[in-house]
Nucleic acid binder design. Structure first.
Lengths: 168, 168
DNA sequence: TCCAAACCCTTGGATGTCCTAGTATATTGC
DNA sequence: GCAATATACTAGGACATCCAAGGGTTTGGA
């Protein structure tokens, strides 16, 4: 989508901020912008690896989540909470996964409001293959040094807890 | 969109990865997942601050970029390159900003293929106000410690360079 | 017991992102 | 000078995300 720029656009933005008298927030601005851009790069890599499997990242995340549930099934609201996305996003993903024969919707045995999402055999197999691909092609070659990975986990974990993601 | 979970879902995922024999990539997986989630949180905060201005983050970024250009104008392809998004995304943003009277499209003086995007007076004023709001309500209260901000800038800067974002 | 409040999922609408053409204009090479 | 190639922008389509609303189910307090 583009060739390398001659200079880091985020570092330029940080300088702009400083020159405009916002030096006190220039660094956090740069860090946040860098997070946004890094997410974009990583998402593109992930989607690229998943495409041959007919999966998007959103659908993969749901499949992976289900594959780690003992029973291979979860209520939709649980999935929404664990994936930390809006319930309508789960509805959307389940619709498409169901069309692809990878999951099935079934009624909750005791709560008529709740719908269970259940992995099919096909879904479980595909989740395994896709995970193997992601592990070798993305996570195994993330481009982050081991120490940096630890720093990221620590810093972002602290941030997410402060943001109210989890109590722990 | 949800209450705090009892436990960190990403730490759980990391444990799952380790238990399935993928210990060698569990940490990068967790770091990458944390980046995705952090981006989601930050984007929501930013959008919340911009909403009263009638702006989204995508539109704000374009306005801010223009406001830093000496002439207040940029070719669309330059904006696409600097913002590191697809040209069609810029077309989309410009359409809406133009409808809102914040920018104007004008022909390039020497290259008939190129369209210049130009800030209107209104656009420049709104960019200033929106930037002030973001500085005080998001960047000024990022929730990252100063040292962590430096770490993020360093780690993600290295990553982005490796990913081919810029030569520097 | 019974109805209001809470909860669960889905539909419809607005945005944004990317990809794949398709049209128009510049540049290059013969 | 002209055809072939490259570049710039836009139209249409596929996906994902969120919000607002609506219909069905449970729960809990009067």
């Amino acid at each position: 989508m583009g060739n390398p720029l001659p200079r880091d656009p985020i570092a330029d933005a940080q300088r702009n901020w400083e020159q405009h008298g916002w030096g006190d927030v220039a660094a956090p601005m740069a860090a946040i912008t860098a997070i946004m851009r890094t997410q974009q790069i990583l998402l593109a890599r992930i989607e690229g690896v998943l495409k041959p499997f007919g999966l998007t990242f959103a659908r993969y995340e749901l499949l992976a989540l289900l594959s780690f549930a003992r029973s291979g099934a979860l209520p939709m609201n649980k999935a929404s909470a664990l994936l930390q996305v809006h319930p309508t996003s789960v509805t959307n993903a389940v619709d498409r996964l169901q069309d692809a024969g990878l999951v099935v919707r079934s009624p909750h045995p005791t709560d008529g409001r709740t719908t269970l999402i259940e992995l099919t055999a096909e879904g479980r197999t595909l989740a395994k293959s896709a995970t193997a691909a992601l592990n070798s092609e993305v996570f195994g070659q993330s481009g982050f040094a081991n120490q940096d990975v630890d720093q990221l986990i620590r810093i972002l974990g602290k941030f997410r807890r402060n943001a109210g993601d989890f109590a722990d």
